[in-house]
């Protein structure tokens, strides 16, 4: 626990220093922080509860659209509509989990793809609700305490707050009753049941938490883009990217998803500016290399090595 709190403190310190060091590269930092939050939130379900979702873009889109439509159609302040979006995301996750958690193996994963795709088609075709295929602009936002929400600096602090919040929740959970229940369910559902844990209930809670947090980040993403199109918001590749980030970083480890986001999104930006045309290709190769040589994910592998070393030392002495 203490190591994790120290880690969180270090993360915050890094976050505070970044804008001073790179004042003109905030967009990429915001993207990384959003992915830190999304991947960590994904991991609550995918890593801790062991249910791989490839439909998390649905929650991103949901959060973004609640904020955008709330502001443009109903004059609702973004923080209220983000909360509303989180509530709806949690409700959808509940309904979805209720229906599908009876399924095991790859079925749940495949159903999440279909879930996000259907939401995408609805967002495109129901223009009265979402502005339709031509998209929605967010032109004006309220200014709480004189803060300009369109300003990259402000957005950076919000993104940092989002990432820290999600990691903080996971750190708190990891030592709580719920965290243990999740791991028990992941390892062996039947044994968990014997220990008095309701696996379905536990997984449902994880899904709801994961969905709601992802939607919160989605709301922020909407403000950063300030122009939403359904093709972009509910994009299958975004779902895939969120899952990839967490898995490469290391599922079920507290810092894995965050590390994954920093390495993948960070290197993607380096490739964008240096290799230009070949960047997505290199991204693919990188993923393959990581899978082949560090299959537990970056952090998972590092932890394993550290533990081994500790045991080896102990055996020597």
């Amino acid at each position: 626990m203490r190591t994790h709190l120290l880690g969180l403190a270090a993360f915050v310190a890094l976050g505070l220093a970044y804008p001073v060091l790179f004042p003109s590269a905030l967009t990429i930092a915001i993207t990384i922080l959003l992915f830190v939050g999304w991947a960590t939130a994904w991991d609550v379900l995918g890593g801790w509860a062991g249910q791989v979702s490839l439909g998390h873009a649905a929650f991103v889109g949901l959060g973004a659209y609640f904020v955008a439509i709330g502001v443009t159609e109903y004059g609702l302040a973004p923080w209220w509509s983000a909360l509303l979006g989180m509530a709806v995301a949690a409700a959808l996750a509940f309904a979805w989990g209720w229906l599908t958690f009876g399924l095991r193996g790859p079925y749940f994963t495949l159903s999440t793809i279909a879930f996000a795709e259907i939401l995408r088609l609805v967002a495109i075709n129901e223009g009265w609700l979402t502005g339709g295929a031509t998209g929605v602009f967010i032109m004006t936002l309220p200014e709480p305490f004189g803060l300009d929400l369109f300003d990259r600096q402000t957005q950076y602090w919000l993104a940092l707050g989002f990432a820290v919040l999600v990691i903080g929740i996971v750190v708190a959970l990891s030592r709580g009753r719920f965290g243990y229940a999740l791991r028990a369910v992941r390892e062996d559902e039947d044994a968990a049941m014997a220990a008095g844990i309701d696996p379905k209930r536990t997984k449902l809670k994880a899904f709801m938490l994961s969905g709601a947090l992802t939607a919160l980040g989605g709301g922020l993403y909407g403000i950063v883009l300030s122009f939403l199109e359904p093709h972009v918001m509910f994009y299958l590749l975004l779902s895939v990217q969120i899952a990839l980030t967490a898995i490469i970083g290391g599922r079920g480890t507290i810092w894995g998803p965050a590390a994954g986001a920093m390495v993948l999104i960070g290197s993607g930006e380096v490739f964008r500016t240096t290799f230009a045309e070949a960047n997505l290709l290199i991204y693919g190769v990188l993923i393959l290399v990581i899978v082949l040589f560090a299959p537990r994910g970056l952090v998972g592998e590092a932890t394993r090595r550290a533990i081994r070393r500790r045991y080896a030392k102990r055996a020597q002495s």
Binding site: I247, L281, G284, L288, V291
Partner: peptide
Amino acid sequence: APIADAPAESSLLATLGLSLIIGNL
């Protein structure tokens, strides 16, 4: 084959990477 014994998501991830590589090549 090298990741046959790794967690199930590894092969999913590997084929995803493969998909990115094929498409961009």
